[in-house]
Design a protein around this nucleic acid. Structure first.
Lengths: 136, 136
DNA sequence: CAGGATCCGTGGTGATACTG
DNA sequence: CAGTATCACCACGGATCCTG
């Protein structure tokens, strides 16, 4: 039995039981997955897991993100209760973002995904190249 | 120290080390996350983790998916080497999809995300409602 | 049965300019 | 500094029709 099979058999969740049959629950389920799976949320949750950061710090640590998307994504995370926003009445303004307990609990499986992606990105890139050139 | 903090400190991955600074690596990283985060990939990987399934079976188990998206998503998963496609030369045609070892390894953290979503969807829904009505 | 082809609407994303 | 407002794009995804 492989490591993966042993790990899976511990919880043994059935995907089609989570998302299937009840349309409302399936909708809620997918709305969470799409939040997790959007372009920036997972990265921001992972970064805030290490400690509070302010807007500009997050922007610098996240290569390629625009100010607009950083604001928007943080608002969504705040709406879901994954992130807290604290505004300091100073000049110049200072805003700190920190992970909530709910956000920290998400960071655990999220970082597991990130590790998986990091560990297998070479293999996946090779698979893609092989698939694409096999298409002639 | 919370459970989450202890668990995180075991692997202690730094998100900004995984995705940051090297633009090519960040691109590869996000391309994997977007695959995971799209509308159907995670569900299909989870279903195929339990055993091989044919096209129609997958379609029936995945409420709301169109034939077009099922085909398209399976092609992407096949391209990444997460899923294998076997065509049987029969009439009527029969095609089986099965998870590769790489796909099974992804299913572990993917199902962890799915469990998290399932466990916290009530809390998140409540957070969203509170946030939305606080906006007046 | 398992798709391929085509059309099309929607939403997520980025660029830019502006503000308290 | 930390946003907001506006415009524009195009990839994602659905509906429909056709085929080996």
């Amino acid at each position: 039995m492989t490591v993966e099979n042993r790990m899976a058999s511990i919880h043994e969740p059935r995907m089609h039981q989570m998302c299937g049959h009840d349309p409302a629950e399936a909708e809620a389920f997918r709305s969470i997955l799409s939040r997790i799976g959007d372009k920036w949320s997972l990265m921001l949750v992972g970064m805030l897991h290490e400690g509070p950061l302010r807007f500009t710090e997050l922007k610098q640590m996240t290569p390629g993100i625009s100010g607009r998307m950083l604001t928007h994504t943080l608002r969504q995370l705040e709406r879901d209760g994954l992130v807290e926003r604290e505004v300091f009445a100073e000049i110049p303004p200072r805003v700190e973002y920190r992970s909530t307990p709910l956000g920290k609990s998400l960071a655990v499986p999220a970082l597991a995904i990130a590790e998986w992606a990091s560990a297998h990105q070479g293999e996946i890139s090779a698979n893609r190249e092989r698939y694409d050139e096999a298409a002639d």
